[in-house]
């Protein structure tokens, strides 16, 4: 297992480099332009000068290598310097990956947005999973019962209603009509005491609810299907025949085996947590990573989109690695070597 993990880790370096190149290629081919969102009163010649000042006149491979240098060498050095409080390798002249639009280091922007994204999207993911697994288990165990039918119905409706709609719906109900929760997320709120904690919870409830609905719907479906598969297996009959208690059969034997495919789904969803939730963040003005990405894309902000997507790619590769390792642990029959 250790051997396998190490081999996968080593292999992921060239894979990630390749992915970074493909992303760069796509962004370069894409027709968005950083001056596209500027007012039309800015004449075309000035736009051309702006593009030149952003370095867009250089050939594609030069810009790619520059990004590689900035991201793989300068950014880690910068983190090191900030951590140690030093200034190594003439830090004054070191160019970091800088956004076209805000003209500030992209990594700083990402760090600034992490808290709200982790709070809202991460919390919704945890909540979603915690609700989904019991629903899936009970639905499968009592297949075609009222609980199962209701669960199926709600999760399907939940999944098929997009957040641009459900988000506005909960705002109209809970903010406008009832006035319980704020419709706009305050990113400057710092939790210092009980009062601010209550405010934080209040402003998180609606986005978390909307996002968790999607997660729950998806994962409970997979959980239910996987449980059903396992409930009919011979080993379950054997376990019951041995006279094991039903709860032991269900929770130890069946649940453990059913979790295998579900773990993949969960692990695969983790990078998406860091990727933020584009639409839900927009609707509630959470302004996390998802909103940063969509603003970057709309504004043709290539360094921002490139960096964000690449960090995202790194997480996907590692999430998949973790999923594969978990497989091996949960199902000893799987051998990778």
């Amino acid at each position: 297992m250790l051997n396998y993990t190490l081999r996968r880790l080593m292999f992921s370096v060239p894979v990630l480099l390749f992915i970074s190149f493909i992303i760069f290629l796509i962004l370069d081919l894409a027709p968005s332009d950083p001056t596209g969102n500027l007012p039309l009163t800015i004449p075309p010649e000035v736009r051309e000068k702006i593009r030149t000042s952003l370095g867009l006149d250089a050939p594609m491979w030069v810009r790619y290598l520059l990004w590689c240098k900035q991201f793989f060498i300068n950014e880690p050095l910068n983190i090191w310097d900030q951590w140690r409080g030093t200034c190594s390798f003439n830090c004054e002249d070191r160019l970091r990956v800088v956004s076209y639009v805000t003209r500030s280091p992209v990594v700083d922007l990402i760090v600034e947005r992490m808290p709200q994204t982790l709070w809202v999207v991460g919390m919704s993911y945890v909540v979603g999973i915690l609700i989904a697994i019991p629903i899936g288990v009970i639905s499968a165990y009592k297949q075609y019962s009222v609980f199962d039918q209701a669960g199926t119905f709600i999760s399907m409706v939940g999944f098929s209603v997009p957040p641009f709609f459900s988000g506005v719906l909960v705002i109209v109900i809970f903010s406008v009509q009832l006035g319980w929760f704020p419709s706009i997320y305050d990113t400057t709120l710092e939790v210092v005491d009980w009062e601010t904690f209550k405010m934080q919870v209040k402003q998180m409830i609606m986005p978390v609810m909307v996002l968790a609905l999607q997660t729950t719907a998806q994962i409970s479906r997979f959980m239910r299907a996987s449980m059903l598969d396992n409930l009919n297996q011979d080993y379950v009959r054997t376990a019951r025949a041995k006279g094991l208690k039903e709860s032991v059969v269900l929770l130890v034997h069946v649940l453990r085996n059913s979790l295998i495919p579900v773990v993949t789904v969960i692990a695969l969803g983790v990078p998406a947590v860091f990727g933020g939730a584009i639409i839900t963040e927009q609707v509630f003005k959470v302004n996390g990573i998802g909103q940063l990405l969509i603003i970057g894309i709309q504004g043709g902000d290539a360094p921002l989109v490139q960096t964000l997507t690449f960090i995202f790619a790194v997480m996907i590769v590692f999430a998949n690695l973790i999923a594969d390792i978990l497989y091996g642990i949960l199902d000893p029959r799987i051998r990778y070597d």
Partner: peptide, 24 residues
Amino acid sequence: SPLMRLTDLFLALPILPLLLVIIM
């Protein structure tokens, strides 16, 4: 291994810019 890395690649691609490229 190659197929799963391909999957990783597709998972990592930024969908919106990709759409813009394909459509263009």
